[in-house]
Each structure stands twice: as C-alpha cells, then as structure tokens.
C-alpha cells in the first residue's frame, strides 16, 4: 500500500487530534496565564506556593510515590510468576487484570469502605482471630490502599510484557557463565525489563498523583490532594483560571514523566499492549 493517497486517511485523525487534543491543551495555558478580564498573569501559576496548595501537592506526591513503590514491589514478583505460566496463558492473564474494570471503578473503590470500616469485614475477621483492629478508613493509608488497588494492573502488565519478551537464552548464558540466580536477576533480567518498569511507574504515578476520586471516597473528603483542589476550582468555586494555573503544575510532572519514559523506552517496548 505504498501510495500517497492512502496517507490522506490520516486526515480525520489529524483534524480530530488538533481540535480535541492540542487546542484544549492551549486553552489550559490560556486560562492558566490570564485573569478573568483576559490580562496576562502568572498569579494562577504561582498560586501553588500558597500553603494550602503546596500542602495538597506535597501530600499528593508523597502518597503517589509510596503507592508507586508498593505497586512495583508487589508487581515485579507477580509478573515473574505469571510469566512462567506459559505463553499461551498470556491472554488469560491480561484478562484477569482487565476484568475488574467491568465492575464500576467508583463502586470497587467504595467497596473498600465496607471492607475497612471499624465494624467492616476485615476488622470482623481480625477480631475473630484475636488480632488488633485495623483503623485506616479516612486516613492517608486508606488512600494509598485505594491507589495500589486501582493502579496495580498498570504496573503488572508492562513488566509482564517485558518479561515474556525476554530471550531465555540470555538467562541461560548468564547461568552457564557462572552467575547465581541473584546475580542473573540484578545484572541481566532487571536491566532488560527496565523499559517495562519505567512504563509501569509512569502509568501508576501520574493517575495516582492527579486523582481526586480515590482521596474523596477513601479519605473521608477531609484530606485534600492537588487533584481535589483543582476539581473544586472547576465544579464548586468556578475559578477556572486558578484551576487551569494549578493544572499547569500537574502538566509539568506529566511532561517530565513523558521525557523520562521516552529516554528509557526508545523502541516502545515497555507498553501496555505488548
């Protein structure tokens, strides 16, 4: 199909992405850098230094960093176990992680309230076993749990894809040359799956950093993350300029993340889709 005409088929997408991806991003810049009367200002951008905003951003960074670390620690061994199950299982494995998405995301997160409450399911089990109760509902820990629960699949799948693509001969070679299993992992397996790991980190960190739903549902609406602040500027206070200005800060993190994953993953190997 090496003809010029077929390139015209990209026109709908070119038009669509210009109108609905690029122009909207310009709009955020426009609103973020102007006042209500349309004058240029940096106030909406520098508003991040106000105590309540910087606290919300700091807490969001802390919670999402912890969640990302927990996801990585949980996901890597999980992906290793899954990758050993055999190549013909891979569709099924992806399915196991996609399937929960068919139960509404809000309901799934809300179900953790039922599980975590003082008189909830988990505490009833703990009491039955004469173990100390777990009181984490409406605390930052509950938000971390919600983040790990919701975003763990986004860490597992890229690492899993990187692992099943790994050339087994490379591992055998390392073992033949005398490396033990720990050395093989550190020197061979982990570096070769790094694109998958980086991809997983970006796919967990960004949604966790910017969420307002999980903090709202599991944090008892008293804990404000930067996402909550921005959401309120748009739906309650109706100060779109301030909301856009704070969103620009989030976009800095997103761009940083894009650059990071582009540097580590030149060939697009660590993607979700395998």
């Amino acid at each position: 199909m090496k003809n010029r005409q077929s390139r015209l088929l990209a026109l709908p997408f070119a038009f669509w992405s210009a109108l609905f991806i690029l122009v909207p991003l310009v709009m955020i810049f426009y609103y973020g850098l102007t006042t209500k009367t349309g004058q240029f200002t940096l106030d909406n951008f520098t508003a991040i230094t106000q105590l309540e905003h910087i606290k919300a951003l700091g807490l969001a960074i802390l919670l999402s960093a912890v969640s990302t670390a927990i996801c990585l620690v949980l996901a890597y061994p999980l992906a290793m176990i899954l990758s050993k199950l055999g190549a013909n299982q891979s569709a099924l494995i992806v399915l196991i992680f996609i399937l929960p998405m068919w139960m509404n995301f809000l309901l799934r997160t809300l179900a953790w309230q039922t599980l975590l409450e003082k008189t909830g399911v988990i505490n009833s089990i703990l009491r039955f076993l004469h173990l100390p109760a777990l009181n984490i509902i409406n605390t930052p820990q509950a938000i971390i749990l919600g983040m790990v629960y919701n975003f763990l699949p986004f860490m597992v799948l890229p690492i899993y894809n990187a692992l099943i693509k790994l050339d087994k001969d490379v591992i055998h070679a390392a073992r033949d040359l005398g490396a033990n299993s720990v050395q093989t992992f550190i020197k061979v397996i982990f570096p070769l799956t790094l694109p998958g790991v980086i991809s997983g980190i970006t796919m967990v960190f960004i949604p966790a950093l910017t969420t307002f739903v999980i903090s709202n549902l599991l944090g008892g609406s008293k804990i404000l993350l930067i996402g909550n602040v921005i959401e309120q500027e748009f739906t309650q206070t109706n100060n779109w300029h301030l909301g856009s200005g704070l969103s620009l800060i989030l976009m800095l993190f997103i761009i940083l993340n894009m650059v990071l994953s582009a540097v580590f993953d030149r060939n697009g190997e660590g993607g979700m889709m395998g």
């Binding site: 709009m27 609103y31 970006t202 949604p207 307002f212 779109w240």
Partner: peptide, 13 residues
Amino acid sequence: LNADIVTGISLML
C-alpha cells in the same frame, strides 16, 4: 499519558 483530570478540564474549557 496525560492525567484524566487535565484531559477532562481541557475539553470542558
């Protein structure tokens, strides 16, 4: 790669 909240508000604007 963009955050849902940024995509959402950019389309809203």
